[in-house]
Design a protein around this nucleic acid. Structure first.
Lengths: 353, 353
DNA sequence: GTGAAAGCGCTAACAC
DNA sequence: GTGTTAGCGCTTTCAC
């Protein structure tokens, strides 16, 4: 057995209460006593058992983190931000990923409940219809959503304005020339934000009097885009000249697939992604995209979660600014495009209930 | 307060022992009793408190994961593999990253000890001199190293043959023409494997009677390569024509920096990286690299750790096969290069003590 | 089959 | 300042 507080107490000739007080700085201890206890701790190599403490205090100083997949750097970046803030505050992370599987969401949230994490930062497939979120509400566990599209003003959600960002993409694509647009989206079922982006994109296009863009869905988990591209470039009478892919990973895969079937980017088709993952800027052609402040989203979400744990009321959605990063995949700007609205930054607009 | 086993017992008119037996299938319970208990559980929404159970059994079904950074996809991929296997076996993950800081290694291992994780999968700066590893040994916590260079045959380590891989890179570079070679390495202090790769690389070069390559070190955490490149391309009389970067992220950064200072890749200099991160193949020029089976390494490490936890003896190093992936950044093959030793695969060679 | 009771390692009143 | 003691929620003998 490992060394316990009892062993330390015995060795220092004090009660376990005194040891506890010293370790947790939760009461005064005479200097000479403190010295004896410290020595005992050092000699025995005592490390307080967090299980005992957690059980006793019903606080674990553990935050759950539940994301779809680490394979997408956008989530890895957010987790990096979460890790940073959690560490600063002495919190530990319980990490889980769903691989875009809704059942896994429930299972993982179950674990968060069982292990009594103090709170959870998560991205779900669809917050409007999520048993995982229902569980959290029912068991009254604090949580903060990240990336998800806010559907309920009372739900703490750190994200960007996906609808507006979708509009921005449409504007940019149109400014670059293409008029026949299409969307390659993640399955609506597994990504509410993909859907919001698409909606904004479509709305802007309709406003411009252009025909409604065709949409094809791709499963994020498998990233099987070949069928989707076939639909777009073969069976359609109007072959699209501009493509909005609802995330960068998808855009990269699409660009690769286009290359294989002889469609040139951006000569034959302009492509814009979403997320702003770091490597996008190093691709060829460089990837045009909407940059989300992922690391910062992770940080803000963590701060917000800690505030809730500390007793503050849950805020509504917190919308962080996004911006367009125009890369070569969007093609050259059309001649009569306006001078330079190419980089477009939104103000930090925080919507509270 | 949450629902406890006591509440369930009361409601079902049984003792808490019976509830425990039913929940854990650890003893027989009469059918009708079982029914009553099950109903009580459902009605109350009871979820067994893992803290209580863990304290009582001194098993947490939690594995620690400690890596340098999630910003490098090579680690994210490994974590994905770990997550997969951990989930299959009902284990939970405690995630930590060090950002290449050795002090963080100790702090994180301390947390692993405090929380009584059943074991730990980790990558350290240098296993030959690691207080983090010492702590694990002293407290007798099972662990498996990943990516690290085995320095002690008794240490469970899942990795590739970094030295041989370094040799392979040298051979490939030479076959592609360059004769003036150099290494851009992570700081030896923060990456033992970078050092092993460099050693293999140098050894091969010396064998060929070529001059010893110059080596410049770059801090992985900051990735500040500009100074390193200046050293290489300005102050040297012999400007290198072939560069081995000890990881892909570094190689990508170097390629970017080369572009900015007017050095063309691969026309002026051939570049080979290490890791085989997925995006490498989509860069321009595509990145030549040594592919490590990261996901699989994560999986194997987890299986190995679980075996240790189950009581099996710790194995020695487990070496997984790597292979070269020649990309455009290595330049066109020299005319008199041998026909096709371009892809080079090693057999799975497991070294046991 | 089932229950009573003794822990697991710790914290937090409460007394002195 | 320090010690005693009653839990925190669970598992696990040991009787019956």
């Amino acid at each position: 057995m490992a060394v316990t507080i009892r062993d330390v107490a015995k060795r220092a000739n004090v009660s376990i209460a005194t040891v506890s007080r010293l370790v947790n700085v939760t009461g005064r201890v005479a200097d000479d006593t403190a010295l004896r206890v410290r020595n005992a701790i050092a000699e025995l190599g005592f490390r307080p058992n967090a299980l005992g403490r957690n059980l006793s205090t019903s606080r674990t100083h553990t935050l759950g983190v539940l994301i779809p997949s680490l394979a997408n750097p956008v989530f890895a970046d957010a987790v990096d931000g979460i890790t940073e803030v959690a560490r600063e505050h002495g919190y530990t992370l319980m990490f889980m990923s769903t691989n875009y599987d809704r059942e896994e969401e429930e299972i993982s949230v179950g674990k968060v409940l069982d292990y009594r994490a103090d709170g959870l930062i998560l991205t779900v497939a669809d917050p409007a219809d999520s048993r995982a979120l229902d569980m959290l509400d029912r068991f009254d566990v604090p949580y903060v959503l990240v990336y998800n599209q806010p559907n309920d003003a009372r739900r703490p959600t750190v994200t960007v304005d996906n609808v507006q960002a979708g509009r921005d993409v449409a504007s940019a694509l149109i400014a670059h020339g293409p008029r026949k647009l299409a969307v390659v989206s993640g399955t609506t079922r597994s990504s509410d934000r993909a859907d919001a982006r698409r909606q904004g994109f479509e709305a802007r296009i309709m406003e411009q009097g252009l025909p409604q863009p065709q949409t094809v869905e791709v499963d994020y988990a498998s990233m099987d885009v070949d069928g989707a591209l076939a639909d777009l470039f073969q069976s359609t009478p109007d072959i699209p000249t501009g493509l909005f892919c609802t995330n960068d990973l998808l855009a990269m895969t699409v660009i690769g697939a286009c290359g294989r079937i002889g469609i040139r980017v951006p000569d034959d088709v302009s492509i814009v992604g979403f997320d702003g993952i770091g490597v996008g800027a190093q691709l060829h052609p460089t990837l045009a995209t909407v940059v989300q402040p992922s690391r910062e989203m992770g940080r803000v979400a963590t701060h917000q979660l800690l505030a809730q744990i500390a007793g503050e009321a849950a805020p509504g959605p917190i919308i962080l600014p996004h911006h367009l990063r125009i890369g070569e995949s969007a093609g050259p700007p059309a001649s009569k495009a306006p001078p330079s609205p190419i980089t477009h930054q939104h103000r930090n607009r925080s919507i509270s209930k």
